[in-house]
């Protein structure tokens, strides 16, 4: 752990530094327009010429003004501290000190990322549970039935070649027509993305016992179900956890994508969409970071359960 600290910090600092530098040419057009409006003379011609000019060239020509790009109201690329401020305001500030926040009103504020994250999280978890259960069932079927192996596996693979962004609106429209809305369609999209890694991992895991292990059970005249419960299932546990880690992050992506086409008013996806409608780039980035933190926590949680489970299964620490 300790040895990883320095490299990780170095990389994070490098990314932040790059981000600050990149924000200058990205925002230079708006910076110069604002400066001109304030009566400062700028290099690079009038607004029309500047619009066609490269951001890097403009930033170099107006080196003295470029730093203004770090404090614009509506930057193209918000600076890290602006995103951090937005994140703080829509989490701790809003919930702890805000009038509508959890501390003062007893429920989460509709303007806070915690509220939106919670909406997305519930759809993610429901979709993850459905996807995992479906994935395990399909894998068991595929391993035990050649017919299912031949018929289901190709469709499972095909299902993942369709871009989720294309199929998500259809799922939502079809389910809406059937009178189902709210968390379920999002969970279905989550499940659609997360069942696949579970199927692939579980099929591999259930098939992982070697011929000798299978022969051994045959010498005991063990039944197929004994072989499943005593050998195949325990053998598949490490594979299952590897799949679950991919599956839960896929679930989160699915839930967010499920919020995009519906014009949903709540959830991290809705937050990103609203941010892009109103040019609130800092809001988009803050929602992105919230999603990333959520995904990392979920994967971390599964890793923790994995370690506990494998230790209880006596695996060499």
């Amino acid at each position: 752990m300790k040895s990883a600290f320095l490299p990780v910090v170095t990389v994070v600092l490098a990314i932040i530094a790059f981000w600050y530098v990149a924000a200058l040419p990205m925002n230079i057009h708006e910076t110069l327009t604002a400066a001109e409006n304030a009566g400062i003379s700028v290099n690079g011609g009038d607004a029309k010429t500047r619009a066609a000019a490269s951001g890097i060239v403009l930033a170099l020509e107006n080196a003295g003004l470029a730093a203004g790009g770090w404090s614009l109201d509506r930057p193209r690329l918000p600076a890290p501290h602006q995103v951090a401020a937005e994140f703080y305001e829509t989490t701790i500030q809003e919930e702890v000190f805000g009038r509508r926040g959890f501390v003062q009103s007893g429920e989460f504020s509709k303007k806070s990322l915690i509220y939106h994250g919670g909406i997305t999280l519930s759809a993610t978890l429901l979709g993850f549970v459905i996807g995992t259960a479906l994935g395990i069932l399909l894998a068991v079927g595929i391993v035990h039935s050649r017919t299912m192996d031949m018929s289901v596996m190709p469709w499972a693979i095909v299902s993942q070649t369709i871009p989720i962004i294309a199929i998500a609106p259809m799922i939502i429209v079809v389910m809406y027509a059937a009178g189902i809305q709210g968390i379920i369609p999002k969970a279905v999209i989550s499940a659609y993305l997360s069942f696949f890694p579970v199927v692939v991992g579980m099929v591999k895991g259930l098939r992982s016992p070697d011929q000798m292990q299978l022969d051994l059970l045959q010498t005991y005249n063990a039944s197929k179900s004994q072989g499943f419960w005593k050998l195949r299932l325990p053998s598949s546990v490490p594979y299952l956890f590897a799949s679950l880690k991919i599956g839960i992050s896929a679930s989160l992506v699915g839930a967010i994508v499920g919020e995009l086409p519906t014009g949903a008013v709540a959830g991290l996806g809705a937050r990103m969409l609203a941010g892009s409608y109103y040019g609130q780039t800092a809001q988009i980035w803050a929602a992105l970071f919230a999603a990333a933190i959520l995904a990392a926590s979920l994967v971390g949680l599964i890793s923790l359960i994995e370690r506990r489970t494998l230790r209880r299964m006596g695996v060499q620490p």
């Binding site: 000798m212 059970l217 005991y220 063990a222 005593k230 050998l231 325990p234």
Partner: peptide, 23 residues
Amino acid sequence: FQAAGLYPWRTIGGNIRLPLEIM
């Protein structure tokens, strides 16, 4: 068999119990 092929998730006692459970 040539390899012991013990189940890593079972103790030694648990491995010996395996055929007994099955039977």
